[in-house]
Design a protein around this nucleic acid. Structure first.
Lengths: 392, 392
DNA sequence: GTATTTTTAACGGAATGCGAATTAAATAAC
DNA sequence: GTTATTTAATTCGCATTCCGTTAAAAATAC
């Protein structure tokens, strides 16, 4: 019970950024007495800080001024990472989720042996931590955001475009390598939480996010919690079936996946751009130069995404859908056809329920989302005076 | 806190049917002391009964014999109803969900004015209650299961094939007519809970049910709770888009809805059978007589359903999917093509995660499911010594 | 100084949960 | 037939935690 209330108070403080006790009592419906007791213990554990100044009401109010409480950024540090096929992005954040250092490695890792990938990740984490002027043992938790189907609870990677193997217990591997608790999560789930904490869904506890990257992912927020499938695994939108063609099943990935849009580019400048992870940006310049092959690929992809999106809205009926990912960089042809297909396909009965938002987040935001995944687990874990208590 | 534990204990007793306190303590992780206190209060409120005999362990065990606890069937009575376009089925059940009386009205109500439909439902409820040798004021709650998109929380019917109007506040209407708390729920959600309590999902807290009736519905059970969309509304699978054809969007309903399979039958014996709600049964006899039009319609429908099913499994990854509804009566051509399309469309990465179960429930089971919806709300509501306390 | 508002402190009461001891009810052993 | 043993359930005492009330302390405006 205390644990629940404690978490609620802490989360209220985080959402507000800076808030007085009496306001917490208002929002959480807890008595001022209880809030005082809980905040005292949070202050004691060093999770929050008190600031005397900063009362935003009119200065001309009488009475004892409010003491504003806010998260103590130094209460914990975590590492978040976005691992993609052609790049890795690491961030170190403080307890508030603010980024302390960033590291981007542009290198193609897909289909490497698992040991090689683990080596690179380990290296990236260590370097990013050093960049933040920290040592690894000052890091409380690491979260890796990966594409594909990830079982967060068990730490297994079911399938991922960056691994040849399937069913890897990657969380355990990396925990042992780093000597720090390491968890894994789908990259789509990570960016979903990033938007919940910092982005376009700060005001919402229910929403859906669709990520259009090399892999097509989905994040569903339901009551402020990620909706993970039974078994805790993430979704792979690319596997959605859009119809039956002459050569069999047509999946979304085959129309809207990165390779479907960019095509097979065996050589040349475009192929080089793709290899370096600039494929979509380069495609945009080609589209602007009216490359008809690419334009029609983008339109096809947009239509497919719009239809799939309509199906997802039919199933989840969220107030807002956020679209993110590199494919958005394709620009008008893609976005217009997506919007058009969506409004055609959305059933009339739920028209107007859902708002569509496009968001071009940087890779850093994705990594920050992974950090948020780690932080959320810290928030819920019991704390001693020195740091988070080890799990039972 | 007590309320939560109380509900847990009550639900544990319901699941077990008959169970000793010490066993409850085992399963709920509550101390025997707490279980004793809670069961005492439940006994006091008349919600459960104690039975001295019935200890199923070997008779030759020493020690004080266990006192088995079970639900008191007489603690409450509810009415559940399945309202379909061409029939209404009512049941009165006791507190355990056991059916006390049944009433089927075979009449076509779709597109009647709302007052007429309400009249018929009111009449059905009253007659079914009388059949159970009860008076309406002995009924604690009524739940109506309707096809279409239903907002359970607010009691509004967003769209339903049986109403001309949309956005009707039907729960309020019927509550006033009957003088009994009346709630509404999607028929698919009702049958989902029926399977959770009595059917093929007794052992599962996570599963998905797909109902193939006149309307195509979906029920998602997640952690023992129905997963309702962000506004508490139900899903309409028929609106799912399966592809783009020459005449525009192809929705599942246009391939696998009842009218899509049976076709437009303006007259004749078949049309008469459809009007009476025997359409699918009659179709089966025609299929057995090798009516090629129907066979190919059934195959098309099966394929469409199989693909849609694969998409749902991709999104929810439940351990089990239960398929119910009148369309199952089409037999082999439909089921075989469904299975085949499903196994083609299911992505390899989650092959084997989900088990497919077909279930031909009677209409009574659907109505019983609606009763379960009502009972679950009673279970959670606070009780006085005389009956459920009125909502605040 | 007085008034006002926020925060902390102190006390009592109520609810809840747990552990230990106790009682209850049966069988097994003698 | 009595006693011991075993298992189930209850009782009792204790700790926690919450809330409400009241009062005091802190800090500022007037």
């Amino acid at each position: 019970m205390r644990a629940i209330n404690r978490f609620n108070v802490l989360d209220t403080i985080r959402r507000a950024g800076s808030i007085a006790r009496i306001e917490i009592s208002d929002r959480t419906q807890l008595s001022t007495t209880t809030v005082s007791a809980i905040t005292a213990s949070l202050l004691d554990d060093g999770l929050i800080l008190a600031r005397t100044e900063g009362d935003l009401r009119e200065a001309a109010t009488r009475g004892r001024p409010r003491v504003m409480l806010e998260l103590n950024p130094d209460a914990a540090r975590v590492v978040g990472a976005k691992i993609a096929a052609n790049r890795m992005v690491f961030v170190v954040t403080d307890f508030c989720g603010e980024v302390l250092s960033t590291l981007t490695l542009a290198l193609r890792v897909d289909r490497q042996p698992i040991g090689v990938i683990a080596d690179l990740i380990e290296d990236g984490v260590r370097r990013c931590v050093v960049d933040a002027n920290l040592a690894l043992d000052e890091i409380d938790s690491v979260c890796l955001g990966l594409p594909g189907v990830v079982e967060h609870r068990t730490g297994h990677i079911r399938t991922s475009p960056i691994f040849r193997e399937s069913g890897v217990d990657f969380a355990k591997d990396m925990s042992e390598r780093l000597g720090v608790t390491t968890i894994v999560e789908s990259d789509a789930h990570a960016i979903t939480l990033a938007h919940h904490w910092f982005g376009q869904a700060r005001d919402l506890d229910d929403m859906v996010l669709v990520s259009l990257e090399q892999t097509l992912g989905l994040g569903v927020l339901h009551g402020g919690q990620l909706f993970r499938g039974a078994g805790g695994l993430s979704h792979n939108l690319g596997d959605l079936v859009l119809g039956m063609g002459p050569q069999g099943i047509i999946r979304l990935a085959s129309l809207a996946g990165e390779s479907a849009i960019l095509g097979d580019q065996p050589s040349g400048r475009f192929a080089e751009a793709i290899r370096l992870g600039r494929g979509m940006a380069h495609a945009k310049t080609l589209i602007d130069a009216e490359d008809n092959t690419l334009i029609s690929a983008a339109i096809r992809a947009g239509e497919a995404c719009g239809m799939a999106l309509a199906n997802i809205v039919t199933l989840f009926a969220p107030p807002r859908v956020i679209l993110v990912g590199s494919s958005l960089a394709l620009g008008q042809p893609f976005l217009d056809s997506l919007r058009e297909a969506y409004s055609l396909a959305i059933p009339p009965s739920i028209k107007g329920v859902t708002e569509l938002v496009f968001d071009q987040s940087t890779d850093e935001t994705w990594a920050q989302g992974a950090a948020v995944v780690a932080l959320r687990e810290l928030y819920e874990s019991p704390w001693g005076t020195t740091g988070p208590a080890p799990a039972l």
